[in-house]
């Protein structure tokens, strides 16, 4: 058989649409944000201020509080979502009675749009809502789920998790189905227990999938905005005021685009560092399979 040459032209042709999308919708806005973060609008005129907007952030307590909320939020939500998605995926590929009902149930949240889901949750979590009614039966007093400083962030984590895990579950299912059953058969013959199979076979072989899910999930949760905008507006007492919301308020409510863009650039920078670390930790070691 003759070896055909690499179809360079075809490769370029196929990549062009994706590359155009990447440049127009990702790189260009980032460049715009970086540029705008060096300007302030004063009396209707754009004034170049260099790094002033960044320097101002250093002593800006609202920014630091918001950064703290963002990091704490992500430290909680990402491991929770991935662990639950992995658990659900492992259940999904089992064969037991009623598995099809289970499969349908856990795919439903994907079909519901985020704003709709948020509105439904808002009604369920209100003072006289379903959730308080249910816990009331058990004798627990009604809780201010979205209006108490101590609860609001966790309520949002719960809603975002409910909405997000089935989506991530699908990717993990794909990864699980890629692991060849012979490996499990061999392990079974060797008398390897179920939990050992999970830790020594499933998770290591799932690493590429988990890496993708982790990176994508972290990026999405860092940029999460809609539930906060719709439910708490950053309150109560700033407890849900993530950086995305702080930037939005600065730019679109106060008309202070310079500060908003500086915050956005900081978010992108943090995200790049985190994603870089994840790549290094999860795919850096090339071990023998």
């Amino acid at each position: 058989m003759t070896q055909s040459r690499t179809p360079v032209l075809l490769i370029i042709l196929l990549l062009v649409p994706a590359l155009i999308g990447l440049v127009v919708f990702r790189l260009y806005p980032i460049a715009l944000a970086v540029n705008d973060s060096f300007f302030n609008v004063l009396r209707g005129n754009s004034v170049f201020v260099g790094f002033d907007n960044y320097v101002a952030l250093l002593t800006d307590s609202a920014f630091w509080n918001s950064l703290k909320v963002t990091l704490w939020f992500n430290l909680l939500i990402n491991p929770i979502q991935i662990a639950l998605a992995l658990g659900l995926a492992l259940l999904y590929v089992q064969n037991f009675k009623g598995v099809s009902v289970y499969r349908v149930l856990f795919l439903i949240p994907i079909g519901v749009s985020l704003p709709t889901a948020v509105i439904i949750w808002r009604i369920m979590l209100s003072q006289d809502g379903l959730v308080n009614g249910v816990i009331g039966i058990a004798g627990v007093p009604a809780q201010p789920w979205l209006t108490a400083e101590s609860l609001a962030l966790y309520s949002i984590i719960a809603i975002a998790t409910w909405k997000g895990i089935s989506y991530w579950m699908i990717f993990i299912i794909g990864g699980l189905q890629n692991i060849s059953p012979e490996i499990y058969d061999a392990a079974r013959i060797d008398g390897v227990k179920a939990w050992q199979r999970l830790i020594f076979i499933t998770i290591p072989l799932l690493r590429p999938t988990l890496l993708f899910v982790l990176v994508a999930d972290v990026s999405i949760n860092f940029l999460l905005f809609a539930p906060i905008f719709m439910l708490t507006q950053g309150g109560p007492a700033g407890s849900t005021n993530v950086l995305m919301y702080e930037a939005y308020k600065s730019g679109f409510v106060f008309g202070d685009m310079g500060r908003a863009m500086a915050i956005i650039v900081v978010v992108v920078a943090i995200l790049l560092v985190i994603v870089g670390l994840q790549f290094k930790l999860l795919s850096g070691r090339k071990e023998a399979r």
């Binding site: 302030n40 004063l42 101002a56 800006d60 307590s61 609202a62 201010p144 209006t147 108490a148 400083e149 309150g235 109560p236 007492a237 700033g238 600065s250 106060f254 008309g255 202070d256 500060r259």
Partner: peptide, 28 residues
Amino acid sequence: FVDIANGVPVADALASAVQKFEAAAARV
């Protein structure tokens, strides 16, 4: 005032409002 209605102590909420307003106003 929304925070106060939701149970945040009055002094904390007002102090935070003063700080937030002055920081944002200083920029315009």
